[in-house]
Design a binder for these strands. Structure first.
Lengths: 174, 174
DNA sequence: ATAGTGATGACAGTGGCTGACATCATGCGT
DNA sequence: ACGCATGATGTCAGCCACTGTCATCACTAT
């Protein structure tokens, strides 16, 4: 996305929507037909991530516990993040964490992801509150692992980091 | 806060800042000197909540595990929510969940609360990532418990609901 | 060729938010 | 009592995100 480049170069706030639009030869008005607002540009892949989580939950064996279903979802979600994407993810993450407004949006996306996952768990027979807790926990593990994956230089896969974080969480709750 | 009343009556988006200001005999400009933006009005008590969490963590016995420190924090935080506040909390909660923008802000507050709690845990010797996970978990438990407490008619205290949710979470992770 | 459809442009308007400067009240030292 | 500093408020101008409305234009099906 061309917008990310501008956000990186001059900062999110100092970038006007008109600039973004013109940088791709369009009008400000047209920008708002494609994106709900100035922030939304950075969250385009959201549907894919959500879909991955859903696929993971649905693919889990029938005997799986809620946390195991979530674990399966984490594994599938990690597949979307090949190592080549790391630099791009890093840049995007830097922009987002540098701006409270963008951080808000990120958190909203996380929350809606968790809500959707909770729905999938419920559809597989998990009780309401257990579903919410498991989903919320899974999304937390994901985002903690993701942050760390981004920060690392080594060639560990996101899936590996996820497993590590999940183990640490289990140890904490014990 | 008079703003809440307006938000309840006519909705958040249909309420202009000028209206809010005039309803208390002030100017729009003055409103923005007291609150960073239109949403912030609803999150005034945030500092107190945060303080309660911090007090809880610090009051936990030296031998406490990270999760036990968080449990202590939850207990202290619950004290701030006497039963009389329930109707008000309910109203506020309804307004917030009805508006994505307000929900975003709420999530941001939660995140910053979690960050602060993680800091307090670190100050008590908990390793970085464990601190983050424990804090995040604690805030999740709080908000799940809070939602349920608000929804209930019965006279259960928030602390009771918190304990129940925490137990369920531990069972999930087992 | 024509009519319908979807994407874009053009334009005006609302409202959140900010910077700059003026005004005013309050309290304090002399 | 006077003058003065300080902090809160009012006023005004302006930016920009975002929206509604209507016109335009390319493309497609019939």
């Amino acid at each position: 996305m061309a917008a990310l480049e501008l956000y990186v170069r001059q900062g999110f706030e100092k970038t006007t929507v008109e600039e973004i639009a013109q940088s791709v030869g369009l009008t400000e008005r047209t920008f708002f037909r494609h994106f709900a607002d100035k922030r939304e540009v950075l969250f385009d892949g959201q549907d894919m991530l959500q879909q991955a989580f859903l696929d993971g939950v649905r693919a889990a064996p029938p005997s799986a516990s809620p946390l195991e279903m979530v674990t399966a979802a984490l594994a599938v979600a990690a597949e979307s993040f090949a190592d080549e994407r790391r630099p791009w993810s890093r840049q995007r993450h830097a922009v987002i964490t540098a701006n409270p407004g963008l951080l808000e949006r990120e958190l909203l996306k996380r929350a809606s992801l968790a809500a959707v996952v909770a729905g999938a768990l419920r559809a597989r027979g998990v009780a309401e509150r257990a579903a919410v807790l498991a989903a919320e926990t899974g999304v937390t593990v994901f985002s903690v692992a993701f942050s760390q994956w981004i920060a690392e230089d080594e060639q560990r896969s996101l899936a590996e980091v996820e497993r590590e974080v999940l183990e640490e969480l289990k140890a904490l709750a014990a």
